[in-house]
């Protein structure tokens, strides 16, 4: 990472610390904001957060690696999470999964080479009566059919840029 980038990231983290405070219970909201903005939490970012909160970086690492939605490795701008729970399974998630792999050109657990898309499994998304359910960033799609997968991906491509990751702020 270039020095300028590091400086910008450090400033950003200090801004978040201003907002959420230095107490330990600010850690996860700070990490959630960082992840939303950068699609990953780098080792450098973890170190700065640890310094700002006065805790050991291994504490931050422990938290980042515990939660499904916080990641060290870089994720795509659009994270596709297909529900793999039994209700969505009964509703035909296997075919949707196959078509997602085909149309995105990646397997589950992978990110596309252009950094646009990641494909993952999700535990129950709470849309069990309207499965198969698919979460794309913060948007949920229900009763997804294999032939709709292409359209969903096109919608993402159309919004890529300004509205790619809208995150609700407190």
């Amino acid at each position: 990472m270039l020095v300028g980038q590091q400086q910008r990231l450090s400033d950003e983290i200090r801004g978040l610390v201003e907002r959420y405070g230095r107490q330990r219970n600010a850690l996860i909201p700070i990490l959630q904001e960082l992840h939303a903005a950068h699609a990953s939490i780098s080792d450098f970012a973890m170190q700065v957060v640890a310094d700002e909160l006065g805790i050991h970086p291994s504490e931050v690492y422990g938290v980042v690696t515990f939660y499904q939605f916080l990641r060290r490795e870089s994720q795509g701008r659009f994270v596709f999470r297909l529900c793999r729970t039994i209700s969505c399974d009964l509703a035909g998630k296997a075919r949707v999964a196959r078509q997602l792999e085909n149309d995105l050109g990646i397997g589950f657990g992978q990110t596309s080479a252009d950094g646009r898309f990641s494909l993952e499994w999700a535990s129950c998304l709470g849309m069990c009566d309207q499965g198969p359910a698919l979460l794309v960033n913060e948007k949920v799609y229900t009763r997804v059919t294999p032939e709709q997968v292409h359209q969903i991906i096109e919608e993402c491509k159309a919004t890529f840029g300004a509205h790619a990751r809208q995150v609700a702020h407190a």
Binding site: T85, I86, S87, S123, C124, G126, M127, C128, D129
Partner: peptide, 11 residues
Amino acid sequence: DEGEPGTFKDR
């Protein structure tokens, strides 16, 4: 934190 598979009443 409604996460039990098959549960969506809290949503």
